Simulated assay, not measured.
Amino acid sequence: MTLILLFLTALLLGGCSSDKSTEEDNTSEAQLYQQAQEALDNNSYSAAAEKLRALESRYPFGHFAEQAQLELVYAYYKSGDAEASRSAAERFIRLHPQHPNVDYAWYIKGLTSFEENRGLISRFLPLDVNKRDPGAARDSFNEFAELLRRFPQSRYAPDAKQRMVYLRNRLAAYEVHVGNYYIKRKAYLAAANRGRYVVENFQGTPVVGDGLALMVEGYRQLKLDDLADSALATLRLNYPNHSLLANGKLTAPTSEEDYLGAFEKAPPAPSTTQANQEVQKQYEDAKDELPAEIQQ
């Protein structure tokens, strides 16, 4: 009797599972797309990604296939899956290089690296972002730069430019942090070289004066007085109010932060993006083409 009951239960469960699977398989392309949009509207990004993946898998040549691939980039991004979002963006760019919205894929790709640069831990703990490895920041800067190179008139260009300013300041501040580390380790040539790198490659950022201060300190410790005097004269001329200057001379730093005296925390990157608006706009553009029976 027990075996019979177990057999009947298995049949019932299998039948329910089969019915559910059949029902899902019979979902039309337009219905899947609408379900994905509803999930996006409800901020259910993982569910939206699942629907978009199903749409692309079942209807690879359908009317909404390209749109699903593009919106999948966004769904992954909003769900916090940076690697999947970046891969989806790269795939879309590779498959549809002439798509009218391919600049959107480039934008989200840069935005994904930008958020990765912030890091999950730093959102909850008071960590100094300028002391962390800037790999993701560099990736994001390069991706936004590529967006601007390819699509200078893109609607995302202004936002990308703002973020690039923030990222460039971040990269420059990291170089100063490394230079200060070398000073503390008495690696004065390496410190001076870091300072010179900042001066030569990050003009216009708030830490150029700090780069000069590193050069002065490094060259002075190496007894390269001519180079130290030249860097000090440039510092006095261009940054007379630098925190390490006293009566026109470079004072000894008392803490690591002294080498970031001229660096005021960079203005925060734009907190809002056009991603939400764009997904909605793209949906509205395609909405008229949905079958009338599902436009409820």
Rank of each mutant, 00 (worst) to 15 (best):
Phe151Lys: 10
Ile93Met: 10
Arg132Thr: 13
Arg86Glu: 04
Leu148Arg: 10
Leu148Ser: 11
Arg170Val: 04
Asp159Glu: 10
Ala137Cys: 07
Trp106Glu: 12
Gln98Trp: 04
Val102Arg: 12
Asn101Val: 12
Ala88Met: 04
Pro126Ala: 13
Asn169Gly: 13
Lys131Asp: 12
Gln153Lys: 09
Val102Asn: 05
Asn169Ile: 03
Phe151Ala: 11
Ser87Asn: 14
Asn130Phe: 03
Pro158Thr: 15
Thr112His: 00
Asp133His: 05
Ile183Thr: 09
Thr112Pro: 01
Ser85Val: 08
Arg185Tyr: 02
Gln153Met: 06
Val102Lys: 07
Gly195Val: 02
Ala88Thr: 07
Phe144Pro: 05
Ile121Asn: 01
Glu90Tyr: 03
Arg194Glu: 01
Phe141Met: 04
Phe141Asn: 02
Asn117Lys: 10
Leu125Pro: 06
Ala136Arg: 08
Ala136Ser: 12
His96Leu: 13
Val178Met: 02
Gly80Leu: 05
Tyr107Asn: 07
Lys78Ala: 03
Asn180Asp: 09
Gly80Arg: 01
Ile121Trp: 00
His99Asn: 12
Gln153His: 09
Gly80Ile: 04
Val102Gln: 06
Tyr181Phe: 08
Gln98Met: 10
Ser154Ile: 09
Leu167Val: 13
Phe144Lys: 15
Ala190Lys: 03
Gly119Gln: 08
Ala82Ser: 11
Val176His: 02
Gln153Asp: 14
Arg150Ile: 05
Arg194Val: 07
Arg94Trp: 05
Glu146Val: 12
Phe151Gln: 08
Ala157Asn: 09
Glu175Leu: 07
Ala105Ser: 12
Gly179Ser: 05
Pro134Val: 14
Phe144Cys: 10
Asn193Gly: 06
Phe92Ile: 09
Glu146His: 15
Ala187Ile: 07
Ala82Cys: 01
Ala160Phe: 06
Phe144Gly: 09
Phe124Pro: 01
Tyr166Met: 11
Arg170Asp: 11
Asn142Thr: 06
Ala157Met: 08
Gly135Trp: 03
Asn169Arg: 07
Thr112Met: 03
Gly80Met: 00
Glu116Asn: 14
Phe151Gly: 12
Leu171Phe: 02
Glu143Met: 04
Asn130Ser: 11
Gly135Gln: 08
Arg149His: 12
Ile121Tyr: 00
Tyr181Leu: 15
Arg194Ser: 09
Glu175Asp: 03
Ser140Thr: 10
Gly119Asn: 09
